[in-house]
Write a protein that binds this DNA or RNA. Structure first.
Lengths: 202, 202, 202, 202
DNA sequence: GATGAATGAGTGTTCATTCAT
DNA sequence: TATGAATGAACACTCATTCAT
């Protein structure tokens, strides 16, 4: 990892725990191990670090979405919610980079309209689309009516969003919190499918 | 409103939109219309303003809870969700003071363990108890099984929590956002009771 | 002299010898004997010091002009160039405050359009008017034709302007330079009046 | 023009409009199109650029003086002030390089004793010698008394010096300012020679 | 109750310069 | 010839706070 990347890494780490304003250039450089003036070789100013992080995040999450979309017709055999676990929980909500970025956006949404919009998009709009699209696929199998699938997607989104704020964007992202999130989410999934007499692998 | 109250009012207004750190004593005093040194007659230091706000909030919300509890066995006649609307939505989530405090706690949860705990308590733990207790009362009427009531309470909490973050702790607390929140929450309530063949006034 | 005045005094002293940019807030505060942060109690920013100096100068020089105008019909007996000596040389060109301001404007004319305009006005336009008005008064006595008076005023202005730049806005404002200026200016006056067969006290 | 010359060119352009201190290595390199470290291949340090400019200027102006001296006994036929126009106005005062250097010296005279001396020499001492020498030559023709020639030279110097500061070292060196300077200078010449019943071509 | 004046510690940022490549 | 990367020192300025009045 080169200096520029280390600055981004350290900055995100600090921003996501203390907020952009509360972190000083001194803090960042101290943690990276460079002099303050050196930072300005890599970034125009403090703001530029935040902007770079946002761009990096949008790139990252866009490519995640691409992977997700190409993986979204799983095996032709039936339907599985496993990949929500893999692609949405594991690679998005639990991913250290993405999780930190979500915290950063959560804190900074009030200071900055651009971040507010990204926050709204990446914590509400896109997750809703992803999750409801999964249930829409379920409806296509004919096992569930479209109306039911719609409602299930909506409920599931509400549940994961609530759990995200409760466990993943609160305190440290510890293993306990991840486990608690996963357990409650899985219980909820099971519940949804129990109603259908299914088990998640339809 | 005396000077001390005006300082608290202005401070909350600024803290909830910019965060504690980002607001200076200058900003506060400028908005109140006093000199910076005058503020120290009323408060020991900047931190003291935040602490006062937290104390005021806990007092306020505790008395709300008292009212709510005494109002929670409504009329002996039947059961109504109306008071969730009145006491939880209107007097808590939409209330300017409470809403600002929630925003403040949301932003400052990462800076300050005390605030993090209050955040967890007043946005997750207590609301969960309030809402599930309402559905528990529903079970006591015998119209709904305890398990169903439990699940309904859980679902309803997830929905209102998600909607709170989506509409009430994002951007300005505009009438549009309040309306959107109320509409989706009411739709959700209706949905829950449709399953029961009911209408919310059981 | 209070702190604010001392800051202005020291600032002008430094600005007029080193230029605005080259003087730091540290330099000023060091010379005044206050901490850097204290300066910001009295002035909004560095620029504000410069602006205050400009305003003070314009006030000062305006009141000088008022005095000069009311003094410009000397004694009814005849006409004397003495007051050019007193009001223009002594109280303007040689005056420490005015001289420093002229140096400051000379240096800063290129950085700042407002200063450039003041420079043009107070070193060229107004002095020209003052000096030619004196010779116009001479013409009114009938001793000199209007055309001659006009030409004399023009010549005299050229001479004093050249001498100002040569002696008064170059190096330190030492007694030698003031003497050299005065001598050459007086020689020039004498020369002008010799042509008329006069002696300056017409 | 090679890199070194481009650096000098750009530097003079910036120095003469903003002053030495106010221009950064960044500014210069940005305008030249090289990296800041590259500049140090060509110049020892920032100061070295200024010194190079001063040396270049002294060389340039010395060779101008040589040309002027060899041209100063014009045609044996009579005497002409035309060459003051050509050699002094056109090739010195109006010349972009010389004009910029004069501005630079004007601004920097207070920061630097060496520059102050150059300023005094090239704006006052040498111009005075050149111009009075022209009028001395006029005296040699016998048309004018030595005393008159002396006074005329002195007056003419005062006029051109004042006009130089008023028009050529103030604001941009626009065509309007050059025209204004030339017009007033020519009027003045005409005036001088009118008194002699001449016309400038004696 | 309120303020004028001051301050030490800190902010983000720019500066000219160096040096290995 | 040129540059990528770094740096120490300085910059203007803001911060929360104090204290005598």
């Amino acid at each position: 990892m080169n200096t520029k990347e280390r600055i981004l890494d350290v900055s995100l780490s600090l921003f996501s725990t203390s907020g952009y304003e509360a972190v000083s250039i001194r803090d960042i450089c101290g943690a990276v191990g460079i002099k303050e003036s050196s930072l300005y070789y890599h970034f125009k100013n403090k703001r530029d670090i935040l902007d770079s992080l946002m761009r990096k995040y949008e790139d990252h999450v866009s490519s995640l979405l691409d992977v997700l979309r190409s993986a979204s017709v799983p095996n032709g055999q039936g339907f599985s919610l496993d990949w929500l676990d893999i692609y949405f929980f594991e690679q998005y909500l639990f991913d250290p980079f993405c999780n930190r970025m979500m915290r950063l956006m959560l804190i900074e949404q009030f200071h900055n309209e651009e971040i507010r919009e990204a926050y709204e998009r990446w914590l509400f709009v896109e997750p809703y689309q992803i999750q409801t699209s999964v249930f829409a696929m379920l409806a296509e199998t004919g096992l569930v009516s479209e109306a039911d699938a719609n409602r299930m997607g909506h409920d599931f989104f509400a549940a994961t969003t609530m759990l995200t704020f409760k466990y993943l964007l609160n305190g440290d992202l510890s293993q306990e919190r991840k486990d608690a999130f996963r357990k409650e989410a899985h219980d909820y999934m099971a519940l949804l499918f129990m109603k259908l007499g299914g088990n998640g692998n339809v």
